[in-house]
Structures are given as C-alpha cells and as structure tokens.
Design a protein around this nucleic acid. Structure first.
Lengths: 234, 234
DNA sequence: ACAAAAGTGTTGAGAGTACACCCATGC
DNA sequence: GCATGGGTGTACTCTCAACACTTTTGT
C-alpha cells in the first residue's frame, strides 16, 4: 500500500527510465532529424531516436547528453527537456518511461560516429521520416511543435547556424522550420531592430553573386525576448 | 555497460519515480497553492507538495491525478505536466526522480480531505510560502512561470473560476496570477472580441452595488488561441 | 443622496504586412 | 552583359495603451 511520498510501507516500485533525443539540424535547406538503426529487438532494423537508459549515478540531463555523444561528436549543444512519456504500454518489453529532449546543432559542428559496426546513424528530413520505433514519431512531432513555437520568441534558432552567418541563411532557417516563406525586407528589419546581431567586417563570397554581409549573434547564449517575439506565429 | 535503448547487457538500472503536483486556486483575491504537512522523515513536519510514488501499473499522469485525489475531493481538474526533475541529489533518501505537474481548480469545487489523522492539507498564498521540503520551492516557481505564460495565449485561466462568472471576477483572476493590474476597458474589449464568452441572462447580485452580468466559457475545454493571445505579456 | 462596483469609446503610437526595384559580383 | 542572389523604403492597417465619466443598485 502506498499513499504519498515515501509512505510506502516497505514496497517501493522502481522503473526503467529512458531518455530520447530529437536532434535537429539544417542540411540542404531541409530540417533534419538524427535517427539510429536499431540492432536489437524489439524493432530490430527500425530507425529510432538516439537514446538510452538513465544510469544509476547520472542525472537525467546527463543521460540525454551522453546518448547524443554516443552517436555524434559534438561539443556545445543546445539541449532542452521536452516532455516525459509515461504511458503503460509504450514499450513492448514492459514498462519503460522516457524523458524526451530536443537538441539543435549546426550541421558543420557535428559528425556522426557512423563507423561503428554496431550502429548506423543518419539524418532524415522531418517531412519524410521513415517508419520509426516505439512512439518516436509522436516525440518528433512534439519536438517540432515546440521548436516552431519557440523560435518565435526566443533565439534558439541561432543554434542551427554557424557562428557567422548571412541574413539570408538566417531567414532560410526560419523558413525551413516554420515551413513557410517570409518576406525578406520585413524579416531583415525585424531581426536588425532586435539589436541581437553584430555586423561583421567580413563578407561571404559564394559563387558569382554579390557577397553577403556576415553577422554574429551578440548574446552569450539563447535569450528569451520579452517583446512581441521574432516572427509572428501563424 | 550500457549503450543505447535496451542494449543493457543484462544490467538495467531502475529508479524510484515520484510525481508532485502544484495545485493552484484563487481565494480571497490571492493565488494559492495546496501544501501537505509531512508526517514522515525526511522533512518531517515540513510542508510539501501533494505527490507520491508512481506505481507499477499506472501511467505517470494517473499517478499525478491519484496524488491529487488523495488530498482533495475534486472531479474534473485541469492537470498538465510541467517538467521532470532528474538531478542526483534532490532527495536525501537517495535517487528519486520526480515528474512535476500543475493543476488548476475553482476554489468552490474542491474540498480538502483534511480530516484524516495522518495528514494536514492547507492553502498558502504563493507570495508567502512557508519553508517547503525538497526542491519544491523551485517546482512552485516553475509552475507559476508556466501559468503566467500560458494564460496569455490559452484559456487555462478559466479553470480557476466557477462556470458562471462576472467579467470583474475574470479580470481579477488575471491580475492575481500576473501580479499586476490591468485596464478594465481594454480587458473587457479583448475578452469579448475573442468570442469565447457567452453572456448569460442572469446577473450576480452581491451587496448593494449594481448587479454584474454573468458569463460562461463557451468552449468545451481549454483552447489555444492562435491569435495574438489574451493579454499581452509584459 | 450617497456609496460601491458595473459598464462604456476614443485617440495616438507603434508594429505588422504587402509590395518592386537597383546593386555588386563572377563568369 | 548577363545571371545570381544581396540589399533597400514606403504606405496602409490593425492592435495596443492610455485615459474618465455615467449607470444601477442597496441602504
């Protein structure tokens, strides 16, 4: 019999606790997610989110970071807890509760540890996900909704870009995430008047067009904009 | 050695999993939280959030609801998952991970099961919390931030009111949550133009002033407003 | 008649939206 | 000189924000 915290009369149920991470990046003007091909049952041979069990002596956040680093080599990542999925039958092996996270990286800063014999990791466009294991599809949807929402009033979106970027690249990342096109002049005005970007001396020369001015994000980390936000939703 | 989901080589760490619920209500023009006086160590005699361990055969959401119903008698509650706190040393007894929730009730619809010998439950103004057990202070702060944010673009706030309410009561609940006063005319115009409220025939007569028109919330449940929101933040 | 809360409009400022052409470069 | 993406300004609309007086009731 168990009534409230700690009042367990000697019986304390324990649970398998997992973490799953939706790692987003932008490649080839598409929003992509990292998936791992499972080598063990259940769902053997099916793609799944990077994840793992939470160890006895690590925090849940640490476990999420570790899961990511087992599949990729990345230094700084923006990692944020999403939601905990605690239904009874989400894992065919039995009761497993998972704490889902999402993470954002610049495609250039990450390399997959795909050489391992035991695992295969690959990027998939969010719009064209293969069949995925467990309830991972739902988790990806959830993460995407959060990301779409959050780039409107925070600067998380900058995590997907390299340190120096052009305004066109920035706009393109917003368009890919929101899945809609934005007005170039309005976007630029809005971004510049937020006083978040520093104009660099350098230009980006790519190809035979006019070089584009490079900018950097001046804030030390992700900031929450107390104003009306960056891009107006919907 | 443990690498990724299910790849545990026979060793699978299991964890004690708790739920904690921040139950908000409005009483005497104050935002209040329900706390329970602990009867067992650790933190014996200290106030704590209602909560409990997640059982083997219940979902995490169910456990949160159950924790609430052990302390109060309430029917429908708005209950939403907040965040999972998974640090190593948040509980002096050892590793306990907690999934925090927040809930909103109308003060008239809830009655405390305080008659039990073993427990004492009481409402405390959020502004004047007593010392609380574990990291529960942080959880309350987190819940408050979420609530403040959410009433700006959803209708969760309506959960704190009875079915029929006056516009003044509605405004007052917003003011209490946001901890700031709002302009009466602007508030009413904004609320009415959302087309969410139905004007009732009845009036509320309280005392010797002019009677106030009663309204009901027309939507079946909480809705997310895709527009600019209800009250503009900050 | 007075105390108390209910109810009601207008104006100015700022932000959002829509929209089209010239510029700098490489080939 | 031309193809390619880079870069720029203005006018209209709409929402937000500030602000004060009249109405209805009970005593």
């Amino acid at each position: 019999m168990m009534n409230s915290r700690g009042d367990t009369n000697g019986y304390l149920p324990k649970h398998a606790l997992a973490v799953d991470v939706v790692l987003f990046t932008i490649q080839a003007a598409q929003l992509k997610v990292l998936l791992i091909k499972r080598r063990q049952p259940p769902y053997q041979g099916t793609w799944a989110l990077p994840g793992g069990m939470v160890g006895r002596d690590e925090s849940v956040d640490t476990a999420a970071l570790r899961a990511l680093q087992e599949e990729t080599s990345i230094g700084n990542v923006y990692l944020e807890q999403l939601y905990t999925f605690g239904e009874l039958n989400r894992d065919p092996r039995g009761r497993v509760i998972t704490v889902a996270y999402y993470a954002l990286v610049n495609a250039e800063q990450v390399s997959l540890r795909g050489s391992s014999v035991r695992k295969t990791a690959a990027w998939f466009a969010v719009k064209q996900l293969p069949p995925v294991a467990f309830d991972h599809r739902r988790i990806v949807e959830y993460a995407l909704a959060r990301l779409r929402n959050k780039i409107n009033y925070t600067t998380v979106g900058f995590q997907l870009l390299p340190k120096a970027f052009t305004l066109t690249e920035l706009q393109s990342s917003y368009e890919v995430i929101l899945n809609q096109s934005l007005d170039k002049r309005n976007f630029r005005r809005k971004m510049l008047q937020l006083r978040i970007l520093a104009r660099m001396r350098e230009f980006k020369k790519k190809g035979r067009q006019r070089p584009a001015r490079l900018y950097t994000f001046t804030e030390p980390k992700v900031i929450k904009l107390q104003e009306k936000g960056i891009i107006v939703p919907f």
